[in-house]
């Protein structure tokens, strides 16, 4: 399955590669965090394709990246809320 993923990616344009990786990662991320899945996927897609491939192959590394992404998103959200309170 690994080589199938790699060879499918190799024949695609950089844009198509990101879309494919997103389509593959999204359901896995959704299973871990249904609420933030779309944001987490968007965030992870900013990483190198080779790292994204590694996450597809290793559920453990995917989980740790998803945890990191959730922490960043929550910190970001808290900051925005603090700024909004200041503005009011």
């Amino acid at each position: 399955e690994k080589s199938l993923i790699a060879s499918t990616l190799a024949s695609a344009s950089p844009e198509e590669q990101k879309i494919m990786l997103g389509e593959w990662l999204f359901p896995l991320i959704q299973a871990m965090n249904p609420t933030l899945a779309s944001k987490i996927t968007g965030m992870l897609l900013e990483m190198d394709n080779s790292e994204l491939l590694h996450m597809l192959e290793s559920p453990e590394s995917l989980r740790s990246k998803v945890d990191e992404a959730v922490a960043v998103l929550q910190a970001c959200q808290a900051q925005q809320e603090a700024q909004q309170e200041k503005a009011i």
Binding site: S13, G42, E46
Partner: peptide
């Protein structure tokens, strides 16, 4: 003070064009 971070990260939805693609150099 800058509101640019509010739209970050670009959300990914299956079957929908992903906004983050604008940041990828061919």
């Amino acid at each position: 003070s800058n509101g640019s971070s509010i739209n970050w990260p670009p959300e990914f939805h299956p079957g929908v064009p992903w906004k983050g693609l604008q940041n990828i150099d061919p």
